[in-house]
Nucleic acid binder design. Structure first.
Length: 782
DNA sequence: TTCTCTCTGAGAAGG
DNA sequence: TCAGAGAGAA
């Protein structure tokens, strides 16, 4: 019977899916699947769940599956529903945050939270922090809100409460103290931030023995996707829940099935730790299967990826292979400038479309968002439809957040973040002064702004009283409404619709608000509130985790946990523009990786980070492996960045590709171009590589004609760049200098003529900067 | 309270 | 280059 499930798997996939979840001693046997790009990992994960259920090794309620995005969770549910005749609705498949939210809702009392607790997204968290600092009269120059936010998030992601933080210097101590105050504020207001969601549920499981045991016994099989992206807290959570932390005897642990790819770990900057894979090997003793058969890319593309990534040292080791044949070589193009790069892109895309390739099958990738502008401009001028990923998403839009803030106040009036957000929006004469007075009153009475509002006297008190009555009225009036009716009522009576109708550019916002009503309707239908609510519960178990929450409360958490699409140009047949990060997990027939220049990709900031270069290389690896049939790489000699023209060297990654798989559309720069560099080891100097204009290696010193006969369009640029004689600069490369504002630094590059002469300086405190020598006050030191 | 101007600083992003 | 924050004026 289950052979159907396995019929379409290759041997290694089949092996992974059917790994015995129990060893010969009857103990749970965990697994680690090293799944290369395009090796069918989602399929393996889903089939594993189906196989476990179908072979009777577990019932659907005994499975816990964790993903990193809602999209991945949804996809898994859909595939599973197609494989098995079961209702997947009650299954615990979701993101870490979604599952933890579910846990905390079910056990809010034990977790020390009100039943109506709200979730703060990153924006909300920042405004809560700003409000906190203001209230405590803390100098936000000295303790920047953003930095405190980072401090708190990182502490929580490592599982650290204030008491666990080692006392360091004064600054550290103050940050810890503010962390404490922030947590107290959140507790008072009944809100939790994203990291708190995880930490709180970890602590819940840790400290409540009955709850822990309940879930440990329920979830006999725990599956994790994108394991390389887990952080320390998520790992600890997993260890605890599966009983591998020592809380259960070895005979009673759950089997963990982790799928990941260390070569695609690109999120260290947000707390992910690839080390977890090695830790997992050591602590869970998993059986290991490598999925190295790639079903996506042609040979040259795959060779390119393999070759590049082999330059990384810290790898578990894996080499992708394909049956698809070599296919097209990887094409490399050098443009003279960013605008010429863009127009080349347009030409090449037009040719691809003429050859019958769908626009949606063409992706333009870049390292940083700022690069999209010039490409968009070129596509727009050429009349080529395109879609940009990223940017503001539906639930992050200001008007939507305003509406949600009103809705949150109906649920939980103590939510001061929401209160502050809309107390004077639309404006109702409650200005900064009134708010300040209100905050003082609230602090004195140890209560929320909402409660303090009625105690205030005078004109401000009257206006605030009006606001409180408005909220109370909305709550009363919608008591028996359906969710969409409530949403509609609130956006009408809050005055939001009217406000935006009066604005010149408000039409879009009004439409978005109306869309929010639709979103509520869709949510009710999807979640099965109303007619088939019963179907949501699986037979056989009355789990404490499956409790009903009010539709509004659950819609609000949905809005926080799932920011929604950025719907711009969705569905249209358009060329796809996105950063390399957001391309992860996607695939396209044709892929362009643009801006392959030193300083950009690898990004200049990365060279100063621990293992930063290796992460950039993995990022490049991810980019390459998005391509199925055609891959183009481009770089430019000059690029406008932050309003200044920069001349960057070609990316070092271009040198790390196998020449047999490449085809240079512009003449490949001769070795001379790469400077007098000896065999690859000299770049790790911690500084951005910069074009060097040594007359004797790049240009014929006697004439302005380049020796390496570059593309004809390049020669103008070349002339300008060839001109500056070295010795006219007041500083030398490597010299230490002092700047009145940035302090001490070292000169790392020089370029330009006369008043245009610039120096790149690596400042100890402020990082790398370009300074115009005619303007900047620089003094040589030592 | 709100509009306008000036200054600053700049990476990637899911929940 | 350009978005966001903060200051100052109406």
């Amino acid at each position: 019977m289950y052979s159907d499930l396995l019929a379409n798997l290759n041997p290694e996939q089949g092996e992974a899916v059917t790994l015995p979840p129990v060893d010969q001693n009857g103990h749970a046997q965990s697994a680690l699947i090293l799944a290369g790009a395009g090796s069918g990992k989602t399929r393996v994960l889903t089939t594993r769940i189906a196989w476990l259920i179908q072979t009777g090794q577990v019932s659907p309620i005994g499975v816990l599956a964790v993903t990193f995005t809602n999209k991945a969770a949804k996809e898994m549910l859909i595939r599973l529903g197609a494989m098995l005749p079961i209702n997947t609705r009650g299954m615990w498949i979701g993101t870490f945050h979604g599952l933890c939210n579910r846990l905390l809702r079910a056990h809010h009392k034990d977790a020390g939270l009100p039943s109506t607790f709200q979730i703060l997204d990153t924006q909300d968290q920042l405004s809560a922090i700003k409000r906190l600092l203001k209230g405590l009269k803390v100098d936000d120059e000295k303790y920047p809100p953003k930095q405190l936010q980072y401090f708190i998030a990182h502490a929580k992601e490592r599982g650290l409460r204030v008491k666990d933080i080692e006392s360091g210097d004064d600054f550290q101590a103050k940050m810890a103290q503010l962390y404490q105050a922030y947590d107290e504020q959140c507790q008072r207001e009944g809100v939790v931030d994203f990291a708190e969601l995880l930490l709180r549920s970890y602590e819940l499981l840790k400290h409540s023995e009955p709850i822990r045991t309940h879930y440990q016994e329920r979830f006999r099989h725990i599956l994790i996707d994108e394991f390389q992206d887990t952080n320390a807290l998520q790992y600890a959570w997993l260890k605890l829940l599966s009983g591998h932390d020592g809380s259960r005897p070895s005979t009673q642990r759950s089997a963990v099935f982790a799928v990941g790819d260390d070569d695609q770990s690109i999120y260290a900057f947000r707390g992910a730790d690839v080390e977890n894979m090695r830790l997992y090997e050591k602590q869970f003793h998993p059986m290991m299967v490598k999925l190295e058969q790639n079903y996506r890319s042609h040979g040259h593309i795959l060779d390119t990826a393999n070759h590049l990534i082999s330059n990384n040292t810290e790898r578990l080791g894996k080499n992708l292979r394909t049956d698809a044949g070599h296919g097209e070589p990887v094409r490399i193009y050098e443009a003279a400038s960013d605008s010429l790069e863009a127009s080349w892109l347009v030409d090449e895309i037009k040719a691809l479309i003429n050859s019958g390739i769908q626009r949606t099958e063409i992706a333009l990738l870049y390292r940083s968002n700022a690069q999209s502008r010039i490409i968009e401009h070129a596509l727009f001028s050429a009349g080529l439809p395109y879609r940009v990923y990223g940017g503001l998403r539906f639930f992050e839009r200001a008007e939507i957040k305003h509406a949600l803030a009103y809705l949150r106040l109906l649920e939980n009036p103590n939510d001061d973040t929401s209160f502050s957000r809309v107390v004077n929006f639309p404006t109702r004469g409650i200005g900064a002064r009134s708010i300040e007075a209100l905050q003082d009153a609230a602090r004195a009475q140890q209560c929320s702004l909402y409660l303090a509002a009625s105690s205030l006297e005078g004109k401000a008190g009257a206006a605030l009283g009006g606001f409180v009555r408005l909220i109370d009225h909305m709550r009363e009036a919608t008591r028996h409404n359906t969710l969409p009716e409530t949403v509609e009522f609130v956006i009408q009576h809050s005055g939001l619709i009217q406000h935006y109708l009066g604005e010149r550019e408000g039409q879009d916002r009004v439409e978005n608000l109306q869309e929010l009503i639709n979103a509520a309707t869709a949510f009710i239908a999807e979640e099965g509130y109303g007619q088939d609510a019963k179907a949501a519960t699986l037979p056989g178990e009355n789990a404490p985790g499956d409790v009903e929450v009010s539709p509004l409360a659950s819609f609000l958490s949905h809005a926080s946990l799932e920011a929604g699409d950025n719907q711009a140009q969705a569905g249209q047949d358009a060329v796809q523009l996105m950063t390399v990060h957001s391309a992860k997990g996607l695939e396209f027939t044709s892929v362009f990786i643009t801006g392959l220049e030193e300083g950009l990709f690898p990004h200049e900031n990365s060279v100063n980070e621990l293992n930063g270069l290796e992460e950039e290389r993995r990022l490049m690896y991810v980019a390459i492996t998005r391509a199925k049939e055609r891959l183009y790489l481009s770089h430019t000699q000059s690029r406008m960045l932050h309003g200044q023209v920069r001349y960057n060297m070609p990316s070092r990654f271009l040198e790390e590709l196998p020449s047999d798989s490449l085809k240079w559309l512009t003449p490949k720069a001769k070795d001379a171009r790469w400077g007098g560099r000896s065999s690859g080891s000299t770049w790790n100097d911690g500084y951005t590589r910069q074009r060097e204009y040594e007359s004797n290696d790049f240009f014929d010193s006697g004439s302005d004609r380049p020796v390496t006969r570059a593309h004809s369009t390049l020669s103008n640029n070349v002339k300008r760049m060839a001109a500056p004689p070295r010795d006219t600069y007041p500083f030398k490369i490597g010299q230490n200098v002092f700047h009145t504002k940035f302090g001490e630094g070292r000169v790392t590059a020089l370029e330009g003529l006369d008043t245009d002469a610039r120096a790149q300086i690596h400042f100890k405190r402020h990082g790398i900067k370009w300074l115009q020598l005619s303007i900047a006050k620089l003094a040589a030191i030592d």
